[in-house]
Design a binder for these strands. Structure first.
Lengths: 158, 158
DNA sequence: TCCTTTTCAATAGCAGGCTATGCAATTAGG
DNA sequence: CCTAATTGCATAGCCTGCTATTGAAAAGGA
């Protein structure tokens, strides 16, 4: 009995939260978000806004569809995040060149200037979580998360 | 340059979402929650309710404080989750034996009967995400998540 | 051309995370 | 014993995720 919370034959009274990958993933992600939020709140940012900025710092002028596909969230989630970012002066929406339904999303000067400090905050949190690992162990951990993401995305209906 | 998103000397234009542990943790946790929710929705459960049940299946009659400390969420978060669980007939609250402020949380028959199928669903999702790993690799991955959780909890102010 | 289908985005409503507040009951000090 | 501090819980308000619905514009087919 490996007790890794995925043996079909496991008895029903041995599910161990502390060894369940899904449980730990949730716990770890909440803590990452809390630590990040502490550090970027002084910049006027919240975690989902930072995530959105990561995409827009890479490429400005994307549409809402581009963004929610790249970040793998639902369209409605992206729409709400963008509304808060517009309210907070981080982005502005402009008419799309060829499609009257769409708008392109553009960073304000304020948002462009946050790139350095916000990314530094994120690196700081990553180091706090995993700075004890050597390069190979970190590579393996990150790769395993990426493979889990791919497998979970593929298993949408399973 | 290791490009693992935590070198302080890293230039500001190289932050790579796909290699950031925090970003991947968030993405992975959202997918875990989605896949779990698909499977436990037919049982009338949502992910945070399942997490709460994991604690109550282990030990019934806990107080709200016991629960939010074990699950590492805020008291207000737990209060809201318990309100929804009471609404849905999963728990009932009884007067605490010695403290008139507190209530003890007790599973209903319905909730006790969900243990087998709900834990099976969670194991299924864990296997979908990580079933390609051998025992040692899985152990290492889970251990690394646990160490990240501990380090992130310790660094509350840092 | 005209009509149907698809696509882009906004909105409503809910779950679950957070902070901040407030009330009631208990505990601790004087 | 009486007050002050602490503790248990509820509530309000916000952010971020989700599903479902809607309206408007674009694309496609007859």
């Amino acid at each position: 009995m490996l007790c890794k919370n995925y043996s079909p034959a496991m008895s029903t009274d041995t599910f161990d939260r502390a060894r369940s990958a899904g449980y730990l993933a949730n716990h770890m992600a909440r803590l990452f978000a809390q630590r990040l939020h502490e550090r970027i709140r002084p910049l006027g940012l919240a975690p989902a806004q930072f995530m959105t900025l990561l995409a827009l710092w890479e490429e400005d002028g994307l549409t809402q569809r581009d963004l929610f596909e790249r970040l793998d969230v639902e369209q409605a989630t992206m729409a709400n995040t963008l509304a808060r970012m517009e309210r907070d002066g981080l982005i502005e929406r402009r008419a799309h060149a060829t499609d009257a339904r769409a708008k392109t999303i553009h960073l304000t000067k304020q948002a462009r200037e946050l790139r350095g400090p916000a990314q530094a905050a994120a690196r700081d949190v990553n180091a706090m979580a995993l700075g004890h690992l050597n390069g190979d162990d970190l590579d393996l951990f990150v790769s395993t998360m990426r493979s889990a993401v791919e497998r979970l995305k593929a298993g949408e209906a399973s």
